[in-house]
Amino acid sequence: MTTTETAYILIVEDEERLARLVADYLRANGHRVEHLAEGTGVVAWVRRERPDLILLDLMLPGKDGLDICREIRAESSVPIIMTTARVEEIDRLLGLELGADDYVCKPYSPRELVARVKAVLRRTLAPEQPAAESGPLRLYRDELRVRAGEREIELTAVEFALLETLYGAPGRIFSRDRLMDRIYRDHRVVSDRTIDSHVKKLRRKLAELVPDQELIHSVYGVGYRYELPAAGD
């Protein structure tokens, strides 16, 4: 069985030297690694091979990394860490809005990247946990799934961490800064818009499960809270 100690990782990177270096570090940490140097065949490869995590460069020959991320997210919740030299905030927000679980800017240390990989894998490949239940939702942390009745959705690791934080303390208001600390354990600096973007996408997904109930509420000027529906709703 795949564990956080041994995962199947796909590197999508057109800089051959960098890809080899990262692959060496990952293999030294016990992971199986495959490498693709251009974007055209990535989605088909992922569909066929089902890796545990993807390191996805943004600027690729054949097909752009954002397009690849969008296509993968349409059918899979496999963790995706984007790597790129484009550091503008709009690129960061767009990558996360499309469902990337993390975002690493070049130049980066291979050790830092391996640490990010470990952090994402801990969230997504942790030993199976029993489902948590509060109100209409049941959360399955080991599978990043949320269920309500007969309906079910998959979330990205970031979306699940956000929901799990709010869900674990119904009625409590979490500031954006507090949510950032819970989601980004490396304490990186991101804008309030990043959290708002995640919440917007999470709400859209939850609406598929419970279309008649708003579970995540905005508190103007403060943050967000998870609120259980009133009895009889």
Results as ranks from 00 to 15, higher is better:
Leu98Cys: 02
Val117Trp: 11
Glu34Gly: 10
Glu75Asp: 12
Arg70Pro: 03
Ile183Gly: 07
Lys118Gly: 07
His35Leu: 14
Arg86Leu: 14
Gly221Tyr: 02
Arg50Trp: 00
Met59Asp: 14
Ile54Lys: 00
Val210Cys: 14
Glu71Tyr: 00
Ala44Tyr: 02
His198Met: 13
Leu121Ser: 01
Leu166Gln: 02
Glu88Ser: 15
Pro211Lys: 03
Ala131Ser: 14
Met82Thr: 04
Ile90Asp: 14
Lys63Phe: 00
Gly65Met: 10
Cys69Ile: 01
Glu227Thr: 10
Asp142Glu: 14
Ile183Lys: 10
Ser109Val: 03
Leu55Gly: 01
Ile153Glu: 02
Ala28Trp: 12
His198Tyr: 15
Tyr108Thr: 08
Pro229Leu: 03
Leu125Cys: 09
Asp91Gln: 03
Arg122Gly: 03
Leu66Gln: 03
Gln129Met: 14
Pro130Asn: 05
Arg27Leu: 04
Glu38Ser: 13
Asp196Ser: 11
Met1Ser: 15
Gly135Met: 07
Arg73Lys: 12
Gly171Cys: 12
Thr3Gly: 05
Leu18Phe: 14
Arg123Ala: 12
Ala7Tyr: 06
Tyr226Glu: 02
Thr4Trp: 01
Glu227Ala: 15
Leu202Met: 11
Arg138His: 08
Glu97Tyr: 14
Arg27Asp: 02
Arg145His: 04
Gly99Asp: 10
Gly30Arg: 08
Ser76Arg: 15
Asp177Phe: 09
Ile9Glu: 01
Asp52Asn: 13
Val43Gly: 01
Leu215His: 06
Arg86His: 07
Glu128Met: 09
Glu97Met: 03
Gly232Glu: 14
Leu66Met: 10
Leu162Tyr: 06
Ala131Thr: 09
Thr194Gly: 03
Glu112Gln: 13
Leu139Ala: 02
Leu58Gln: 10
Leu36Thr: 05
Leu144Asp: 05
Asp91Tyr: 15
Glu13Gln: 03
Arg178Lys: 11
Thr84Pro: 10
Gly39Ser: 02
Leu53Gln: 00
Asp186Gln: 14
Leu121Phe: 00
Arg111Asn: 09
Arg176Glu: 15
Ser191Asn: 09
Pro170His: 04
Pro170Val: 07
Phe174Pro: 00
Glu5Trp: 02
Arg176Ile: 15
Tyr25Arg: 10
Ala28His: 10
Asp101Ser: 05
Tyr220Gln: 08
Val219Arg: 08
Arg145Lys: 14
Arg73Cys: 07
His198Leu: 15
Ala37His: 08
Arg225Trp: 00
Ser175Pro: 04
Asp186His: 13
Met180Trp: 06
Ala148Ser: 15
Leu60Val: 04
Ile9Tyr: 02
Ala231Ile: 13
Glu112Trp: 03
Ala85His: 04
Leu60Lys: 01
Ile173Lys: 11
Arg178Phe: 04
Val190Thr: 15
Val78Leu: 11
Met82Asp: 07
Val104Phe: 02
Glu89Pro: 08
Arg225Ser: 13
Leu18Tyr: 05
Lys201Asn: 15
Leu66His: 07
Tyr167Ser: 00
Arg123Val: 09
Gly135Thr: 04
Gly99His: 11
Arg151Cys: 02
Val33Arg: 03
Asp233Phe: 01
Ser134Asp: 04
Arg203Cys: 09
Val219Leu: 08
Leu94Val: 11
Ala23Leu: 07
Pro136Lys: 07
